[in-house]
C-alpha cells in the first residue's frame, strides 16, 4: 500500500474513533440489513475497550485465559494477539508489533442484521452477544464480520464470539483477558461514565486513538492507543508459521517457515 493511502486510512481510523464517541441516534425501525433495536443489558452504560499497545508484550496471556474462561474449542479464539516482525528494508533493523484482536462490539455491527433468527443481537450496553439456544448455525454472521471475530463452535454447532465476558461484567468482575493482562494494556469500562478510567484515557488521548478497518463503517468500540496505520486494515505481510505434520499427516506443531 502506498504512503498516501496509508496516511489516509490512518486519518479515517482516527476520525472514526472520534465519531464513535457520539452515540448513534436511537434506531427505531429497520429496513433490510439495518440495525434492529437493541435489547437486554443496561441502557445507561456503553461498554468499550481501550488497548494500550505500548503496554502489550504479546505474551498471549489474554488468549489463554479467554480460552479457559470461555471454553472455546482448540484452534478457535475469541481473542488472539497478532504478532508481526517488521524489518526496515534499508537498515535491516527489526521490531515487533503486537495487535490484540477481539470482537469490536461495533456501534454498527454487520453481524447483527444478517442473523435470520435474531439469535445474535446487541445489548443496550453495546455488547454483541449470541443466544446459542436460538442460533441455527447458518454462519452468516461469521461471513459478515470483517474482523474474523466469530466462528462456529464445533461443540455447540452455533456461532461463538467474544462477549466482553458479559457474564463476568454483569456480576462486577473484569473480563478474563483484562484480568490476566500482565502489562495492564486492556482497559474496559463504561464510556458513558465520564469518570471511568476508559473515559479519562479516551479524553486524554483523543487524537491518537485508532480503530480497525474504519472503511467498513462499523464504528468499532475497541480503541487502540499506540497503533501503527499500516496495521489498521489487513496488513501487507507474509505469514511465517505453518503447521507441521508427521508422516501420517497428523498435525504435531508449528515451526517457522524457512527453518
Amino acid at each position: 500500500m502506498d504512503k498516501i493511502r496509508r496516511a489516509l486510512l490512518g486519518q479515517i481510523a482516527k476520525l472514526t474513533a472520534g465519531a464513535a464517541l457520539v452515540p448513534l441516534s436511537s434506531i427505531t425501525s429497520a429496513d433490510i440489513n439495518d440495525q434492529p433495536p437493541r435489547r437486554e443489558g443496561d441502557p445507561e452504560r456503553r461498554y468499550a475497550m481501550l488497548i494500550d499497545l505500548r503496554a502489550c508484550i504479546g505474551c498471549q496471556a489474554c488468549t489463554a485465559s479467554c480460552h479457559i474462561e470461555n471454553e472455546a474449542p482448540l484452534g478457535n479464539f475469541r481473542t488472539i494477539v497478532s504478532q508481526y516482525e517488521v524489518e526496515h528494508e534499508e537498515t535491516g533493523n527489526t521490531a515487533t508489533f503486537m495487535l490484540p484482536r477481539l470482537c469490536n462490539h461495533c456501534e454498527n455491527p454487520p453481524c447483527v442484521p444478517v442473523c435470520p433468527v435474531q439469535a445474535t443481537f446487541q445489548r443496550e450496553d453495546g455488547i454483541v452477544v449470541v443466544d446459542n439456544e436460538a442460533c441455527v448455525g447458518c454462519a452468516y454472521c461469521v461471513q459478515a464480520c470483517p474482523y474474523d471475530a466469530r466462528f462456529i463452535n464445533e461443540y455447540t454447532q452455533t456461532a461463538d464470539k467474544c462477549t466482553f465476558c458479559a457474564h463476568r461484567l454483569d456480576v462486577g468482575l473484569l473480563p478474563a483477558c483484562v484480568e490476566s493482562c500482565v502489562g495492564g494494556a486492556r482497559i474496559i469500562g463504561d464510556i458513558r461514565d465520564p469518570d471511568s478510567q476508559i473515559s479519562r484515557m479516551m479524553k486524554e488521548h483523543y487524537g491518537e486513538l485508532m480503530v480497525l478497518k474504519p472503511e467498513m463503517g462499523t464504528a468499532p468500540h475497541v480503541f487502540y492507543l499506540g497503533m501503527d496505520e499500516r496495521f489498521v486494515s489487513r496488513p501487507d505481510a507474509k505469514p511465517a508459521i505453518w503447521d507441521v505434520r508427521d508422516q501420517q499427516g497428523e498435525e504435531i506443531g508449528y515451526e517457522f517457515s524457512g527453518h
Partner: peptide
Amino acid sequence: ADLHQPLRFWHFYANLTPWSWMSIGS
C-alpha cells in the same frame, strides 16, 4: 444441510426477521 443446526430450521419461522435477507429467503 448447510445449517450447523438443521433441526432448528423452524426457528426461521418462529422468529421472523424482516431485516435479514436470509430470513426473507426462508
